[in-house]
């Protein structure tokens, strides 16, 4: 099967007010397979969000190509299909809600792309069920918690039946409870609904749930691999201005003290395994 996202030699260039060239993305190559869960991490300004915005053609490549489900994102006739293939969820839940009633908000997308009336209702109901918000269908979104609003935003994307969802720091503005709700929802989308997930985050513990982690630095991919491969390189990750999950940090400290802990120990379970045999 061909990858759902295929990026080749992608650069995104813009000019600041003094007309200096800024390369927000610089020769990026990557592919995301159908059904994969990919996390993107990197410091502020490393190009994560710019990259993600290419995946549903909010931005177009200055150089290189970006193929979504085989469609070239720089061709205008493909926009419609690309945006139905890849949905986006942003950081601030308050900026993504357009209607005064939850179910109307979720219906906004399908209505916009001309889904027949009879089909809209089942889509909305199914989307709200997936994010566990069925009982709030008739509520006013502004009275919901941050985590609930963010789940409504996800439902709005789901109602378009996308193959892939890109989430740009969806938990940054949420409290711990809201964060857990979103993490559980996203896992479910990936594992049960087989939706491809691209998940941008500053929270390393959240990146652990991915199949693959891409680390960005100054518009380039600095490192990629499984969570085990990426987070066992503690020094490299710190040098990139990031941190590793706590179990990996503890494992590295113990290793540095000359104690035998396996290289790819990054989760609490793996650390327990290594210490308590």
């Amino acid at each position: 099967m061909k990858p759902i996202i295929e990026v080749e030699n992608l650069s995104h260039i813009y000019y600041d007010s003094q007309n200096r060239e800024i390369r927000a993305l610089d020769g990026v190559n990557l592919s995301v397979e159908q059904g994969e869960f990919v996390a993107i991490i990197g410091t502020n300004g490393s190009g994560k969000s710019t990259l993600a915005r290419h995946f549903n053609a909010l931005l177009c490549p200055t150089e290189g190509t970006c193929l979504i489900n085989g469609l070239d994102s720089s061709l205008e006739e493909n926009l419609w299909d690309i945006r139905q293939t890849v949905g986006m969820v942003f950081q601030n839940p308050d900026n993504q809600i357009v209607a005064a009633i939850v179910e109307e908000d979720v219906a906004f997308g399908p209505e916009n792309i001309g889904v027949p009336q009879a089909e809209i209702r089942p889509r909305v109901e199914a989307a709200l069920a997936v994010v566990n918000m069925t009982e709030y269908a008739k509520h006013a979104p502004h009275l919901l918690s941050g985590g609930q609003k963010q789940r409504v935003a996800i439902a709005g994307v789901l109602a378009l039946l996308p193959k892939c969802i890109v989430l740009d720091e969806p938990t940054a503005m949420l409290d711990p409870k809201g964060r857990k709700e979103i993490v559980a929802t996203v896992k479910k989308l990936n594992k049960e609904k087989n939706i491809t997930v691209v998940y941008i985050t500053h929270k390393m513990e959240e990146a652990l749930m991915a199949d693959k982690i891409i680390v960005m630095k100054q518009g380039k991919i600095a490192l990629q691999g499984t969570p085990g491969e990426v987070f066992s390189r503690v020094e490299k990750i710190k040098e990139l201005g990031l941190e590793v999950p706590i179990a990996a940090e503890v494992a590295a400290e113990l290793r540095a003290g000359g104690h035998r802990i396996p290289e790819k120990t990054i989760t609490p379970e793996e650390l327990a395994e290594a210490l308590c045999q």
Partner: peptide
């Protein structure tokens, strides 16, 4: 994390707050 390790039978004291404390207790 200290709780998880304790459940698995590692005898870690309650005196943990930060990562460095945990490393020491382990």
């Amino acid at each position: 994390l200290a709780d998880i390790l304790r459940e698995r039978g590692l005898d870690i004291s309650n005196d943990v707050l930060k990562t460095e404390d945990l490393v020491r207790q382990i």
